Amino acid sequence: MLTFVGLGLYDLGDISVKGLDYVRNADAVYLEAYTSRLMGADVSEMEAFFGKEIRVLAREDVEQDPHEIIERAASGQVAFLTGGDPMISTTHADLRIRAAAAGVATSIIHASSISSAVSGLSGLQNYRFGKSCSVPFPARGWFPTTPIETIAKNLELSLHTLVYLDIQKDRYMRIPEAITILEEMAEKCGIEPPTLYVGIARAGSENPVVRAGTGAKLKETDFGPPLHVLVVPADLHPMEREYLEVFADL
């Protein structure tokens, strides 16, 4: 059995009772650490909390060579840990499909996700979100503009956009940097840059930071340590505007 276990948003207190019970009784525990991370707990703390040795997986371990995971799940109980909710990332869906093709039973233990937490923290109504996008760190000779194009299409439809920020092995994109990159993308594409953003830092922690305003305002805002996420709102409903005024300093 291969069970995908969501860890929630920030620390070890976010896992469900069901998930905790499964991990503590699993024969093997893997942690996917490239799509999201718990910033409130490191691997050693997780191992002490669960009472289990944890193997940390890189992207290639899951997407290119998941044979070990599937083989162990064919003969025992395997917990595959992910930050947030397990099935938000397509790479996890692909692993579940591969396991099913190999005749391995699978299950999912859900947890809180940033895709739902942003609505609670920002007050932006969840049914008004369009397609999400991710802003990657630019590389030499590579500067994709898909994120700003996605935002522009959503704005045309009066839909909000959830913008995920890049996570790499040794660095995390911050909100000011993401806004600068989006503005550069907009200039390159001849698109008007967004006039309003909502920045959220450390969702799920005791003291998340939520701020709304222009790009210039948020680039001067100290959001503190990662993880950060960004939202580009469409035209605001009066209740959304009031919520942002009360809770996000709009």
Results as ranks from 00 to 15, higher is better:
130 G>S: 09
222 D>K: 06
202 R>D: 10
215 G>S: 05
29 V>M: 06
48 A>T: 13
213 G>C: 05
132 S>N: 07
244 L>F: 10
223 F>D: 01
119 S>M: 05
204 G>H: 14
202 R>M: 14
60 E>D: 10
65 D>C: 00
189 C>S: 15
247 F>V: 12
153 K>Q: 08
32 E>M: 01
22 Y>Q: 02
242 E>Q: 13
133 C>V: 12
136 P>Q: 05
174 R>A: 14
163 V>E: 12
119 S>H: 04
238 P>T: 00
235 D>N: 13
86 P>I: 14
138 P>Q: 12
153 K>W: 00
179 I>G: 06
136 P>I: 11
154 N>S: 06
78 V>E: 10
116 S>Y: 11
205 S>F: 05
2 L>S: 05
94 D>F: 09
199 G>V: 13
240 E>Y: 08
133 C>Y: 03
114 I>F: 05
232 V>M: 06
190 G>H: 09
153 K>Y: 08
206 E>Q: 13
134 S>G: 14
170 D>W: 06
19 G>P: 02
78 V>R: 02
206 E>I: 09
170 D>M: 08
19 G>M: 13
91 T>Y: 04
16 S>Y: 07
61 D>T: 13
229 V>T: 15
163 V>A: 13
156 E>V: 07
109 I>F: 01
70 I>Q: 07
60 E>L: 00
163 V>D: 12
169 K>E: 15
118 V>D: 09
125 Q>H: 14
23 V>F: 01
228 H>L: 06
187 E>Y: 02
222 D>H: 08
91 T>L: 03
